[in-house]
């Protein structure tokens, strides 16, 4: 589906039991060049919808009826298995690293974001587009929590402040080009930073950005 003509608006399904909020997001996406092809109020409805609509993107609230637990995460796993071409964004009121890693283990084109990110419209739309284009994205606040966690013997102490910044952006799912753009350096400089970080932290070189996200998250969680 990624190879489809870019002239057609990407199709989206939404799942959230809060109708007002769901409609808000739908209208936001519609105004930003997406075609909302269906909305669901729980995981079961979402799966039926996704199977029939086969959308490019699913935006899912993690907490839905009946259990108000992590139904969205479960649905995301099923969609990823049945429709690997569908990009998935899971929105949550609280971001937790185990949920992020759980989701991102599913491959690329996955996003795990705080729900309130939708209110920062421009950035949210940009993130959604990056994810549909192939990136994996983790909410910056979760990455900040992981990076800022205080440790007695902190392995991150070997990194320079700049390298820490680059590491955080790697964890958020930014590509080297994206990082270069964010910190106003050349892509070559970013590559050097990345190599240095991987060496210092003894992390393996990853073939894809999404694998890199997962590796960095794992490292940060376990440190």
């Amino acid at each position: 589906m990624r190879g489809m003509a870019s002239s057609r608006a990407p199709q989206v399904v939404l799942a959230d039991d809060d109708v007002l909020l769901r409609e808000g997001v739908a209208s936001l996406l519609a105004r930003s060049g997406f075609e909302v092809v269906g909305q669901a109020g729980n995981g079961t409805e979402l799966l039926a919808l996704a199977r029939s609509a086969r959308p490019e993107l699913a935006v899912i609230d993690i907490r839905m009826p009946p259990g108000h637990g992590t139904e969205g995460l479960t649905a995301a796993r099923v969609i990823r298995e049945e429709l690997p071409g569908t990009a998935i964004i899971v929105l949550s009121a609280h971001v937790e690293v185990n949920e992020a890693m759980d989701l991102l283990a599913g491959g690329e084109r996955l996003g795990y974001l705080l729900k309130s990110r939708v209110t920062d419209v421009a950035e949210f739309i940009d993130t959604v587009k990056r994810i549909t284009a192939g990136a994996s994205v983790v909410d910056p606040s979760l990455v900040q929590e992981l990076v800022r966690a205080r440790r007695r013997r902190d392995p991150l102490d070997v990194l320079s402040p700049r390298e820490r910044q680059v590491l955080a952006l790697m964890a958020e799912g930014a590509s080297n080009a994206g990082i270069a753009q964010r910190i106003f350096v050349t892509e070559g400089t970013v590559e050097k930073h990345v190599r240095s970080i991987l060496t210092k932290l003894d992390l393996p070189e990853s073939e894809t950005d999404h694998r890199r996200v997962l590796a960095v998250l794992k490292f940060l969680e376990a440190r």
Binding site: G69, T70, V97, R148, A149, R150, R151, R152
Partner: peptide, 30 residues
């Protein structure tokens, strides 16, 4: 709301919840 009842405790259990607690602590936690 997180302070009142951490959702992760119900959804994922004690281990992830304690680790999350540790990360948010001002004092380093082993």
């Amino acid at each position: 709301s997180h302070g009142i009842h951490p959702a992760i405790l119900s959804s994922a259990g004690l281990r992830p919840a304690l680790r999350a607690l540790g990360r948010r602590s001002a004092v380093p936690v082993d």
